[in-house]
Amino acid sequence: MRKYVSFFAVGIFFGIVLTKSEVVSWYRIQEMFLFDSFHMYGVIGSAVLLGIIGIAWIKRRKLKSIRGQLIEFTPKNRSIARYLLGGIIFGLGWSMVGACPGPIYTLIGYGYSVIVVVLLSALAGTWVYGLLRSRLPH
């Protein structure tokens, strides 16, 4: 159990950041897709910019994790179909519920108990994907 405490703590931090930056807000997501505000682009853009710099540095310095293992990155498979089609389906849902998976968890904790229905539906969606996977273009 003790090994999970650190992940739980990082999760609490992440949930607070998502809430306080209003990334969990359906309205902020609509505002983003309407191109009416820089807010969401700033959040994602600055995270990615720092991410690019940091990961390049981790690779160059061959940094190690807390357990002393080299921090490694697995390249994603090259394909267009699954990323584009899956991405479009995800995007349709993202705009509809105004929340991606992180915010779904955080909103439930915030007190929007009805979002449990969204979480259960997302689990159902994941399960149906698993059933249909061999028949979908990847």
Binding site: R82, Y83, I89, F90, G93, P101, I104, V117, S121, V128
Partner: peptide, 18 residues
């Protein structure tokens, strides 16, 4: 809620991430 949640779960796994 139900349709949107389903699309998020299905799409994220199909695309291999969110």
């Amino acid at each position: 809620l139900i349709g949107g949640g389903f699309l998020v779960g299905f799409g994220a796994r199909y695309a291999g991430g969110c």
